[in-house]
Design a protein around this nucleic acid. Structure first.
Length: 565
RNA sequence: UGUCCCAUGGUGUAAUUGGCAACACGUCUGAUUUUGGUUCAGAAGAGUCUAAGUUCGAGCCUUAGUGGGACAACCA
């Protein structure tokens, strides 16, 4: 009902500077009113939350203007790429809720077209083969402040270039023997225009084209051209490609016949505090086994976040909250966490679990009796219904829900005080049992039979309501608690420090024996829950009936813990 | 000795030039609550990097500074 108005509001808020540029193009009648974008990952790693921003923007912009968005794998460097990544990327994009329909492309689909285009440029004296080694070419390129100098091979005759290029393709040369360069301007203030490389020799097996090719196009020569071949109108990318734009346009001008030109527009990438978003470094974490794979719940990868219990809706919501600009900033991880809690609070099934058990014996409750208490599945959603929770003489409560010498404003159980066991009874602590070391081993309590369901007919109130689990009727589970992987706000930007030393040693805590109400037996992997008063959890993908494993997605906000410092 | 980009509360974003700036997160109060959650009510917090200019009027336009970032991979 009110959902409609919030929907409208959020759609209106999605407007950004890219939408304005697209609207302007449309108004000027460019591209026959077409809007066509693409999401172009290189399959050299798993997608992370930063990619989610690009995905939402690419697909979102197309959708907003009734256009289309392609998925394209930018697979021009076979030495780093792999089919595993191709598969995971598709799974993750779909999971986020986007659909490229039948428009799945690979840069490698266009290798022939790119080759032909290169030949054309050679014939037009706009490209040449350079036989110099990499370091010499690099030297001649100059620096950002000093102009470059021309290669001695720059004015090679067309026929010789054609011949050499063909022999490059045929595999007559070894890696690094020569390259194809565009002939532009070695004195340009823009480094990328100083005769950029178009092709290099790489004798490597490609995950799709196998050994068909031993020369591969460079990013600048492939990307814009693929945009052109696919009919992309707006090529959205991150800020670091801003300086590439003149080159992007130069190639487009050489290639284009009519009026149609793809247009590159840049936006700032997502930076999240305490989060590492470099594929290279994430790969290193995986390879060094500092995490348990790309989908480790601590990873900022889409697959890791999925396993952790984050929802696609929450991730898309974060992207919307963060907005699209060219300002490079650092988004507080709290914004993401808020988006997750906001979503989970509305949708998560409530359940009671005890992570650190303290046994409670209800001395005046009959031994062997099991009472099924009614519990609400989700107070935010009446349609979620109710369930039964078994209540018995012996129970577990959370160890820190009891204090022998409670400070003021402690609402929970203490000697002589009365609290409510949620959905069950009022109980009063009569006796504290300790072992020889003085550690509390169990509590003896009495219950008020008249308070069944959690209210006393005499109207008396209690300060606290505790969650609990029957000590005999329960599910035993392993629970994994996660904290941030890095303990510094900007782990990517610590110069001179190995980022691995910045990792939080307490980022993963495994609790072996925890007790959860029987209800969870019916759930399946990746289902998520809110454990009353403890936080959001989901069932790990590796969980099974013999061993249930839960991941803690996030804690609940907790004022009491905050007060305690 | 360059070229390009950016600059609004702590953070991220808004603001047809025309009432000294709005929203979200975070923070802090208070109320309600069978989750110290949620919800609700409220508060604090910037005068828009600086300077000059245009204008009756500038966060927005101009110029010059300042600060930050990108660019010198046979990576993308």
């Amino acid at each position: 009902m009110s959902d409609n108005s919030t929907e409208k509001k959020s759609v209106a808020k999605t407007r950004n500077f890219i939408h304005e540029l697209v609207e302007k193009d449309l108004l000027e009648g460019k591209n026959n009113g077409r809007v066509h974008t693409r999401f172009p990952p290189e399959p050299n790693g798993y997608l992370h939350i930063g990619h989610a921003k690009a995905i939402c923007l690419d697909f979102g912009t197309a959708e907003k203007f009734g256009g289309k968005c392609n998925l394209r794998f930018d697979d021009t460097n076979p030495s780093k790429e792999d089919q595993e990544y191709v598969d995971s990327i598709q799974e993750d994009v779909r999971w986020l809720g986007f659909d490229w329909e039948d428009r799945l492309y690979y840069a490698s689909d266009f290798f022939d077209d790119l080759y032909n285009f290169a030949v054309r440029l050679i014939k037009e004296e706009k490209a040449y083969i350079d036989d110099q080694p990499a370091d010499l070419i690099s030297q001649q390129r100059g620096t950002p402040t000093k102009p470059g100098t021309e290669s001695p091979y720059r004015n090679r005759p067309i026929e010789e270039n054609l011949d050499l290029f063909e022999r490059m393709k045929k595999g007559e040369f070894q890696n690094g023997h020569c390259v194809l360069r565009a002939k532009i301007d070695m004195t340009s203030p823009n480094m990328h225009l100083r005769d950029p490389l178009m092709y290099r020799i790489m004798h490597a097996e490609h995950h799709r084209t196998g050994n068909k090719w031993c020369i591969y196009p460079m990013y600048d020569f492939a990307h814009g051209q693929c945009d052109y071949f696919e009919g992309i109108t707006h090529s959205l990318c991150t800020l670091e490609f801003e300086v590439h734009r003149p080159l992007y346009n130069w190639f487009a001008d050489q290639l284009a016949d009519g009026d149609y030109r793809p247009r590159q527009i840049e936006f700032s990438r997502l930076n999240l505090s305490y989060t590492m978003m470099s594929k290279r470094k994430l790969l290193q974490l995986v390879e060094d086994k500092l995490v348990n794979g790309w989908d480790d719940p601590r990873m900022p990868t889409i697959s890791g976040m999925r396993r952790r219990g984050f929802t696609p809706h929450a991730i898309r919501n974060l992207v919307e909250k963060v907005g699209i600009t060219k300002t490079e900033g650092m988004v507080d991880i709290a914004v993401l966490e808020h988006a997750v809690r906001e979503d989970l609070n509305k949708s998560a099934q409530r359940v009671m679990g005890v992570l650190d058990p303290l046994k409670v014996i209800i001395t005046n409750y009959p031994e062997g009796e099991i009472e099924m208490m009614d519990a609400i599945n989700n107070p935010e959603d009446e349609s979620a219904g109710q369930r039964k929770v078994p209540f018995t003489r012996e129970l577990y409560i959370e160890r820190d829900d009891f204090m022998e010498n409670p400070p003021k404003k402690f609402f929970r159980l203490a000697p002589g005080t009365e609290v409510r066991l949620r959905y069950a009874y009022f109980v009063k602590c009569e006796n504290v049992i300790k072992d020889e070391n003085g550690n509390i081993t169990e509590l003896h309590c009495t219950y008020d039979p008249a308070s069944r369901g959690g209210n006393s007919p005499d109207g008396r109130k209690v300060k606290g309501t505790l969650h609990w689990v029957s000590a005999t009727e329960n599910v035993e589970a392993e629970v994994r608690l996660y904290d941030r992987l890095f303990s510094v706000e900007d782990p990517a930007n610590q110069k001179d420090t190995d980022f691995r030393t910045l990792m939080n040693p307490d980022s993963l805590i495994v609790l072996q024996k925890c007790y959860i109400e029987p209800f969870v037996k019916e759930a399946k992997p990746l289902d998520y829950f809110q454990f009353e008063r403890l936080g959001y959890f989901n069932i790990d993908k590796d969980s099974n009936n013999e061993k249930m494993v839960f991941n803690r997605t996030l804690t609940l906000r907790d004022n009491w813990t905050k007060q305690m410092g």
